[in-house]
Design a protein around this nucleic acid. Sequence first.
DNA 1: TAACTATCTTACTTTTAGGTAAGTTATTGC
DNA 2: GCAATAACTTACCTAAAAGTAAGATAGTTA
Lengths: 91, 91
Amino acid sequence: MGLIGTKWKPLILFHLLDNNLRSGILQRKISGISNKMFTQTVRELEKDGLITRKVFPVVPPKVEYGLSERGRSLELILKSLDTWGEQDLLD
Amino acid sequence: MGLIGTKWKPLILFHLLDNNLRSGILQRKISGISNKMFTQTVRELEKDGLITRKVFPVVPPKVEYGLSERGRSLELILKSLDTWGEQDLLD
DNA sequence: TAACTATCTTACTTTTAGGTAAGTTATTGC
DNA sequence: GCAATAACTTACCTAAAAGTAAGATAGTTA
């Protein structure tokens, strides 16, 4: 229940619903997040087992994030939250 | 989407799903919450239009909280979050 | 060889969330 | 007339979350 008790986690998960995304692109989708919070939050999501992280050994670096199976199991909840939030934009 | 981005709000809403509850009882159900945070959070939820607050002019005071229609519309999401959180208790 | 790239870290500071403890209220029961 | 009651509110303080800005990395291209 406390699972979603953070500002950024649900947002990041939400943006990964459609496709895997590489780090920079995902970050640009989360408007307002600082670089630090972004890295910190994906690290936590990875530890939680909600997203996967794939590093390509190239220069400049390339990192891709995607939902794990466990993360995928949140799909309905994430979509509901999104729809609910858009109904009338309080908060 | 940022709607649930707090530690206590979803918890309080969740405990109101079944019945309206008077203040003290509701607060005792939210283990770990301080008196201050409790009052503060229900105030916010009331402003958000998610819960209703009914004051009975008796001594000692009696206050009852319940879900508003808008709050009630979160029922499925709250229950999903709860079930999801219990599946395996990470976080 | 210097600049550019994408991703992340680290040190430092500010902002926000949260806790503790005391005080307020108005009636009832002793 | 004093204590007990439920539901706050307030002032003060600490802890946690988040922002800013700088630096590390190492190949590629000019």
